[in-house]
Design a protein around this nucleic acid. Structure first.
Length: 342
DNA sequence: TTTCCACCGGAACTTTAGGTAA
DNA sequence: TTACCTAAAGTTCCGGTGGAAA
């Protein structure tokens, strides 16, 4: 049933990108100077989740590396590498320059120095989910190094700009912006159809089912491909010749649950207790959350720390807050209710 | 309209934990 | 072993905001 599982994986970069010609050309033109050995401008790629931001950034970078011999590329997910240290470390690690760097005893400045001294080929640095950085000054660090071309990927440019200081805002505003919208259902259908063509045997899934996945994913290509992957995997395990409607229904729920579980796995034990309090008692106010949380753990953190946890979980789209002041209440985000499979 | 107070989040400070070097 | 260094996590303090009550 599954002809090529790679095609259905989340991080797969296709040979051809569907419906993003303008954005691909725009980003390619920003990186163009690199082909002549000159420094390139910083690019900012913005758009909603699943709009193909990471995909086109990697696609353009890959294509550049095919054209030019002396170009390196490195990818950093700033959600997982959210501190300045981890981001810089990840880049140095990709360049093979971290042998004698240690997490606790190497100062930040030494990592920047190390990057400055990097005398290898010009390097494209893709900073994905850059709005998740705790300390965005790392963008400034990289911006000042001409041998690195930076692609900053974020959901909303306002959120990115609101978190950086003035000197960086003025620099980023003069950067090239590539703005991307959600995919339409027809476009999502084309993407799914191409993935199904290369990844699955013939007649495993019918057009109507692909349209329903596109509809349920509501413009999010990552979710759409996730549903297709989950459905194909389940049908394969259960020895079906084709994907049935029941399998598709389950896959839509599973794909959403997997995305949520990924966020839950990144929580610390204390954060998890806070999440569970909201899950069991929400909608619930901050005072009650702290009260119940304090009953459930041996060494409770302060209210201020809990506020930081809550705000982090809001960013992860695990919780949502209503009200602005004394009427503030937190509850779980019900992602499944957003766009159920028909 | 004023006052009270829960809540938010920035800034500065402290504690913790892991690593180095003598 | 110990003194010292650093990043990360947590705490304290405090000004701003906005809903509720006087």
């Amino acid at each position: 049933m599954i002809r090529d599982a790679r095609v259905l994986r989340a991080g797969f970069v296709p040979r051809e990108v569907e419906h993003r010609d303008a954005e691909v050309n725009h980003l390619s033109s920003v990186l163009e100077p690199i082909t002549n050995g000159e420094p390139a401008d910083t690019a900012i790629v913005t758009g909603p989740s699943g709009a193909g931001k990471t995909c086109i950034s990697q696609f353009v970078t890959e294509r550049l590396r095919e054209e030019v011999l002396d170009v390196e590329a490195t990818y950093v997910n700033c959600w997982r590498n959210y501190t300045r240290f981890r981001t810089l470390y990840q880049i140095l690690d990709d360049l093979g320059a971290t042998i004698d760097i240690h997490r606790q005893s190497t100062p930040h400045d030494e990592l920047v120095d190390r990057l400055q001294q990097h005398d290898g080929p010009r390097t494209v640095v893709i900073l994905d989910e850059v709005d998740q950085l705790e300390d965005p000054s790392v963008i400034y660090d990289l911006h000042s190094l001409p041998q690195f071309a930076i692609i900053c990927i974020a959901n909303k440019e306002e959120e990115l700009f609101s978190r950086v200081d003035d000197r960086l805002v003025s620099r980023l505003r003069s950067s090239e912006h590539v703005r991307m919208d959600k995919y339409h259902d027809e476009q999502l259908y084309d993407i799914l159809s191409a993935r199904a063509k290369w990844g699955l045997d013939e007649d495993v899934i019918i057009d109507d089912q692909l349209y329903r996945i596109a509809d349920a994913a509501a413009g999010d290509a990552r979710l759409a491909i996730g549903i297709l992957r989950t459905a194909a995997g389940k049908a394969d395990r259960e020895n079906h010749e084709r994907i049935t409607d029941d399998i598709l229904l389950d896959a839509a729920e599973d794909a959403r649950a997997q995305i949520k579980q990924k966020s839950l796995d990144s929580l610390t034990p204390h954060q998890r207790v806070v999440y569970d309090v909201v899950r069991e008692h929400g909608p619930v106010g901050p005072s009650e959350i702290h009260e119940r949380y304090s009953e459930d753990v041996d060494d409770p953190r302060t209210k201020r720390t809990i506020r930081t946890y809550l705000s982090k979980m809001e960013q992860y789209n695990l919780l949502e807050a209503e009200g602005t002041s004394r009427d503030r209440e937190y509850s779980l985000v019900d992602s499944a209710a957003a766009s159920p499979m028909q």
